[in-house]
Design a binder for these strands. Structure first.
Lengths: 227, 227
DNA sequence: CGCAAATTTTTGTCGGACAATCATGGGGAT
DNA sequence: ATCCCCATGATTGTCCGACAAAAATTTGCG
């Protein structure tokens, strides 16, 4: 400490717009599971509760609709997005495409991208040893997958992947609140990373397929909590 | 005529919201190249011009921002999205991932999905024989690619692909307006489809890579019109 | 108990208002 | 003449209030 940093990238004095603050607060509440999927988000209630105008709330809700976190139906309002079984399998199919593309790009990827995978993996295993909330754990878990998709070095594909992970976090936040989080299969990612480092892309791909199948299974419990 | 159709799927009596009408009108103008990339979209000007309130225009612009068709910068307004060279190569990289995934899914895809590819191909070749605008031709062209991505049977991946095609249409609309459309390499898709029908997925993939490289090249002209 | 009508709630759209911020242009100092 | 500073105007961000249209809810009647 005391050493002058060579970069001030983390500093941010820009006054964030009110709409952004409202949207962020709603995202936080959603990801922490404070609001159950299917719950309607009433505009006036939110406006008075947050101390902002209804116009601002409407705009923030529009952003969440674009994120896929809430669904808006005409003249009926917006409700917290609830995942259907078809939605879950669709998400997993899409994940497989994006993350497999990342695996295929491992060799050609930049060193930063590969380092990001290792860092995400290390952070996740570090968290598994410390007592953290289930939300933090799933966030770290999904960040591994995000870094894998980021091996494609395509911002647009990564944005799509992030939207998928947001949907997953939403569903898991609800599940985590209902009952304690399931035992994460932590070791799987370590194996996956080893396969990547060794250049065994086909086996890495197979490991990913298996891992995603397990993820689909536990996600299905979020729509049938007491199947 | 006079024969009762066995399906009324195309009928739509739902009163579209004003925001949707405004957003659709703006999309149309954008895709027809009436507004050049980089042009600012002033809220009051649009409101008075379209005969709606500024709130409605703002909300419609928010939808276009979510579509990626316009960019909004804080306190400066929204401008028609302009593609950068990095954006173009990113789009093509993303296209390759999505459409290659479609090709890989050819055998496992539903018969409807495969029929959609054939229909899109047929419609495109039909249009090449008739005099149509360049915009219609590119729309039909991109619809072939859309149907290929749709072989994944993943609505979310298809939505991502459609966002990419929307960006491409935006750039090409501008290019088409500046000078007559380039001669589309129409035959390539026919070859691609034949390879798919024959089950030669690897060769189909190679054909796709080649085709997309050509697409990237002509897209680059839209940012350097007189390179 | 079932159904139709009336009431309440909620959204969609409008108009106006004002502060904060950005862009523009002019005037003064060097 | 050039450069900097400031006044002015234009534009966005946010708020408020209002009202019609649609949906949800309750009431009332048979």
């Amino acid at each position: 400490m005391g050493m002058p940093p060579n970069s001030f990238a983390s500093l941010n004095v820009e006054p964030v717009s009110t709409v952004d603050r409202v949207a962020d607060e709603l995202r936080r509440a959603l990801f922490e599971g404070e609001i159950e999927p299917g719950t309607p988000l009433r505009e006036v209630a939110l406006a008075t509760s947050l101390g902002v105008s209804r116009s601002t709330v409407r705009e923030a809700l529009g952003a969440l609709v674009a994120d896929g976190l809430v669904d808006r139906v005409a003249n009926k309002g917006t409700v917290v997005h609830a995942l259907t079984p078809e939605g879950i399998s669709d998400i997993c199919r899409a994940r497989l495409v994006l993350e497999a593309a990342g695996i295929d790009a491992w060799a050609n990827a930049s060193e930063e991208a590969r380092a990001a995978v290792r860092a995400a993996q290390a952070e996740f295993t570090r968290l598994t040893r410390n007592p953290v909330t289930a939300q933090e754990l799933t966030a770290a878990h999904l960040d591994i997958h995000r870094s894998i998709a980021a091996l494609t070095e395509s911002p647009r594909l990564v944005a799509t992947a992030e939207a998928l992970y947001a949907e997953i976090r939403l569903a898991l936040a609800h599940l985590d609140r209902v009952r304690g989080n399931t035992t994460e299969q932590a070791h799987a990612h370590g194996d996956l990373l080893e396969l990547l480092e060794g250049g065994h892309l086909d086996e890495a791909r197979a490991a990913l397929v298996e891992h995603l199948a397990g993820a689909e299974e536990s996600l299905m419990e979020s729509v049938q909590p007491l199947g």
